[in-house]
Amino acid sequence: MTAMQAVALYSGLNILLLLYLAINVSLHRRRAKVSLGVGTDAGLEQACRAHGNGTENLPPALIGLALLGLLGSGTLVIHALGMALTLGRGLHAYGLLTDPGRSFGRVAGTALSWLVLLVSALLLLGKAIS
C-alpha cells in the first residue's frame, strides 16, 4: 500500500463516520419534529454536536494527511496518524452520543484527534522549511 492509498483508506473510513453522524442527526430531527436548531431535545443536541465536532476536526486532519502523503511522508507515518485519527474520532463520537457529560470516549477521542492535528502540523512545517 502506498502512502496515498493509506490516505484514501483513512479518508474513506472517516467520511463514512461523518455520514453515519449526519444520518443520526436526521433521524433525531425526524423523531423530535425539529427542522432547525435542537429545540429542547437533548438527544438531538448530542447528535448535532457529535456531527458538528466531526465536521470541525476531520477536514484539517484529512487535508494534513493528504499533504503529508503528497510530500513524500512514509506509509507508516500515514498509517499511524490515520489510525489515531480514526480511533479518536470514533471514540469521541461514541462518547458524546452515549453520555452528554465527560466520558472516557470524549476525553480520549479529543486527545487523539488533537495529537494528530499537532503532529501533522509540525511535520508539514518541517517539510515546508526543509
Rank of each mutant, 00 (worst) to 15 (best):
L87M: 06
L36K: 08
L65S: 00
V77Q: 08
A128M: 11
G88T: 07
L91G: 03
G105W: 03
L96Q: 13
N53I: 00
L112I: 06
V119Y: 00
G72E: 05
L112E: 01
V119T: 00
A128G: 07
L117Y: 09
C48F: 15
L125W: 10
L91E: 07
S26V: 15
S35V: 11
Y20G: 14
V38I: 05
A8G: 12
A50I: 01
D99S: 03
G54C: 08
V107G: 11
G54Q: 13
C48G: 13
A6M: 13
A32C: 08
V77N: 10
T40P: 03
S73A: 12
G109C: 03
G126D: 04
N53C: 01
L44T: 00
L36Q: 05
F104T: 09
G109F: 02
N24F: 03
T55L: 13
T75H: 08
E45S: 07
K33N: 15
L58R: 13
L17G: 05
L16E: 02
E56Y: 00
Y10T: 03
S120L: 03
L27T: 09
A66R: 06
S11G: 15
N57G: 13
A80Q: 10
V34E: 02
G37K: 06
K127D: 08
L122M: 14
G69N: 11
V7D: 10
S120V: 08
L36S: 08
Y10N: 02
L44W: 02
N24H: 15
L21V: 00
A42E: 11
A50V: 01
G52S: 02
A61Y: 00
L76T: 14
S113I: 01
N53W: 10
A93R: 06
R30N: 09
A93D: 06
P59R: 07
G54L: 04
P60I: 06
S26Y: 09
V107E: 11
A32Q: 04
N53M: 01
R102G: 03
L117M: 12
L112N: 08
Q46V: 01
G105D: 02
K127A: 14
A3G: 10
G74T: 01
E45M: 11
I63P: 09
G37A: 08
L76G: 14
H79W: 03
L112V: 01
A61F: 00
L91W: 02
V77T: 13
G101D: 14
A32V: 10
L122S: 13
A22N: 14
L58V: 04
G109N: 05
L62M: 05
L62F: 01
A80N: 04
T40Y: 09
A66Q: 10
L122F: 13
G43P: 02
S26L: 11
L13P: 00
A8F: 06
A108E: 06
S26D: 13
G69T: 04
G39F: 10
E56M: 00
A50E: 02
